[in-house]
């Protein structure tokens, strides 16, 4: 564990707490993509299957359980509890276009051609693009509640913090994880437009609005 990875994980943790806080306090999941949340459930379940056979640390164990549990809870809240506030007509990104290519990539790029390793690769690739339905929805509506933008910023910053972590680990441990690195850089890249608007507008106290 190093400082960058800890910051990344805490940012990831914060993003989920902000998301649940938004849903609970506004009693609404308006502005949130159900598809993106469903993809995160798939990401966490396929990646954290190793909970059942690999012990890393208590920290790792608790965080994995939290990410699986909270993503399922979010999906439940969106699907049942606050269902009427979710508008499927603007959440129209075709997730087949994400899941299919990620599955193919995972079959080609993996560290071992085994079920668990291919699923791990799949989860890494899928995570890198899972935000697209949400960003697509944001693009369509052209604006977002401030709390939703804080959620997205924390979620985007999380993977960005992993990049210095990988550089650090390369020099201190000699460990290189090319699949995670390439996907992580791509994932962070997808947020660049969002970050620009977030830091130039929301951080200055303005509302998040995209130019028409």
């Amino acid at each position: 564990m190093n400082f960058f990875r800890l910051l990344g994980d805490l940012s990831h943790l914060a993003s989920i707490l902000i998301l649940l806080h938004k849903i609970k306090t506004t009693r609404s999941c308006r502005g949130l993509s159900f598809k993106t949340q469903a993809l995160y459930v798939a990401v966490f379940i396929t990646r954290y299957l190793d909970l059942t056979y690999r012990w890393v640390s208590l920290y790792n164990f608790v965080m994995k359980l939290f990410f699986i549990g909270s993503s399922c809870a979010t999906l439940y809240l969106m699907r049942y509890k606050y269902c009427p506030t979710h508008d499927p007509s603007i959440d129209t990104f075709k997730i087949e276009y994400l899941v299919g290519p990620c599955a193919i990539l995972a079959l080609i790029f993996n560290y071992k051609f085994s079920v668990s390793e291919v699923l791990w690769s799949f989860s890494i690739f899928l995570e890198s693009v899972a935000i697209l339905p949400q960003l697509f929805m944001l693009q369509r509506t052209g604006e977002a509640e401030t709390i939703t933008t804080h959620y997205l910023a924390a979620l985007g910053i999380y993977r960005a913090f992993y990049i210095p972590n990988w550089i650090y680990r390369y020099f201190t441990e000699g460990v290189v994880d090319p699949i995670a690195i390439v996907a992580g850089i791509a994932q962070t890249g997808l947020y660049l437009d969002f970050f620009y608007v977030y830091f130039t507008k929301v951080m200055q106290g303005e509302k998040f609005e995209l130019p028409a």
Binding site: R54, V56, S57, N60, K64, Y111, N165, V176, A180
Partner: peptide, 10 residues
């Protein structure tokens, strides 16, 4: 495998 990846990250 070529890479000694630890899978110890989240």
């Amino acid at each position: 495998s070529r890479f000694q990846v630890k899978h110890d990250e989240l």
